[in-house]
Design a protein around this nucleic acid. Structure first.
Lengths: 266, 266
DNA sequence: GATCAAGAAG
DNA sequence: CTTCTTGATC
């Protein structure tokens, strides 16, 4: 089965690209982040016509996540405690296709010296607490999303330890999530330093020709629990989705991360 | 020869439609209004590749006119006196293809009770004065543009005498321009009441399904001087350009007005 | 550099 | 309803 996570950066602007992605990959599960529009804007009819159910947790203008699935999903949770006070839609937990599927849009943090930096760390701690309280590491579970953290120096073209993506405190907070009982599916297939530089980064800044220079970072991840560890068959970045063909519509700044699991019996 | 006037409502947004229009009609002259961007934004290269020269009179964000021609044009005037104080780009006068070609984007006026209503009337008076001072009604001349006036009640689906398009003062001011020595090319072909309701209006409000209901107005005009009067062969509205095909880009609220002149010798 | 929100304009 | 501006965010 195929599971994808993609920060599409506006469902309004990326509607056509979303439908093409569904047709191209036919994923069983698709986790989306940064819908940036109220739930009513989501193209439910087009997505249904493509054969997908959609569970949505959205707000106006900012954040917003969704999980699309061929089989209808059952929602377990919308939101995490640190989101509540700010009214932010950054987390969704469902059961779908015999799995627990969680998606997260981790706060960027703005800068390690900005007042919002603490919010990023608290948010990751709340995610770890949620897993501990509400999930079972012995059951099949996938956690996918935009974590706004490059776990290791080799996961970013410029691994600035003072930047939002590589700061030690953010890496430690993410490690606290993983420690509960997760494996980074990408790293199950590719050891650090053994990946191709064409199948590593998932995000490139819109400015300074970052995509052309491959000046990106691996900040979108798919994590799996132990029962799925040996089921990981393939992990790849759909770089082509990040490309802008001449005269075409503008891509998201993130590329989809695609995971194939072998769920045949035995 | 073919002469078109079109208020395209943003050169940025209508770039692809402009190029298709050139390919579809191959006009000798194309007058454009409401570029709504600085001159640098104009797609000179694409237009040149299509075989056209472009003379542009533009400003940032608002107004802006241009005259495209297969043969290079010679600019006679950019702007009219009432534009100067406000920095508005609403008028361009060139020689092209053996003709004098003027294009105008007449101020809307906002409402007959708005302080800007006087500006609309002054603007039309300045246009009449310009013709009297700078042009010769015995020479071949075409004046095309968005006049924001429906000359007669049959030129608007709802001919509200209190509205900006049908107010008697605006009609009188436009009549003052025509009186210099112009014929409304559309009315040379179709007498009042003898036109088809599918070849009359050039503008339809974006709201209230105006185009579907054909609730439009004939406010874009092509005027000709006496030497061209007997040369008018055909006048038609390219309604198809105003249509929005499902999933396609958004049209301008104006349709192009197309004039064919017979300029064969004798 | 691309997105969203207001507000102004047509 | 669609466009453009400015300012904020990522």
């Amino acid at each position: 089965m195929r599971i994808i996570t993609w920060n599409l950066n506006s469902i309004r602007t990326r509607r056509a690209r979303l439908l093409k992605l569904l047709a191209r990959h036919e994923p069983d599960i698709l986790c989306l982040q940064e819908l940036r529009a109220e739930a009513e804007v989501f193209p439910r009819l087009d997505v249904a016509a493509a054969g997908y159910h959609a569970e949505i947790h959205a707000q106006a203008a900012r954040n917003g996540v969704a999980i699309l699935s061929k089989q209808r999903a059952r929602v377990r949770r919308r939101g995490l405690p640190p989101c509540e006070g700010r009214g932010e839609a950054r987390f969704l937990d469902v059961e779908a296709a015999g799995l627990r599927v969680l998606t997260a849009y981790v706060p960027n943090g703005k800068s390690p010296r900005h007042p919002d930096w603490g919010y990023k760390l608290e948010w990751l701690e709340a995610l770890a607490a949620y897993l501990a309280d509400e999930c079972d590491p012995e059951q099949p579970l996938v956690l996918g999303g935009d974590f706004n953290v490059a776990p290791a120096d080799c996961d970013a073209a410029t691994a600035n330890p003072d930047g939002v993506l590589c700061h030690p405190s953010a890496r430690a907070a993410l490690a606290g999530v993983v420690r509960w009982g997760l494996d980074d599916a990408f790293r199950l297939e590719f050891a650090e330093g053994e990946e191709s530089d064409r199948n590593l980064y998932t995000w490139w800044d819109y400015t300074r020709l970052s995509f052309a220079r491959n000046a990106g970072a691996r900040i979108d991840h798919l994590y799996v629990t132990a029962p799925l560890r040996s089921r990981v068959r393939k992990v790849m970045v759909d770089r082509d989705e990040r490309r802008q063909k001449k005269g075409q519509d503008i891509p998201s700044d993130h590329a989809p991360l695609v995971l194939d699991l072998d769920v045949s019996r035995g």
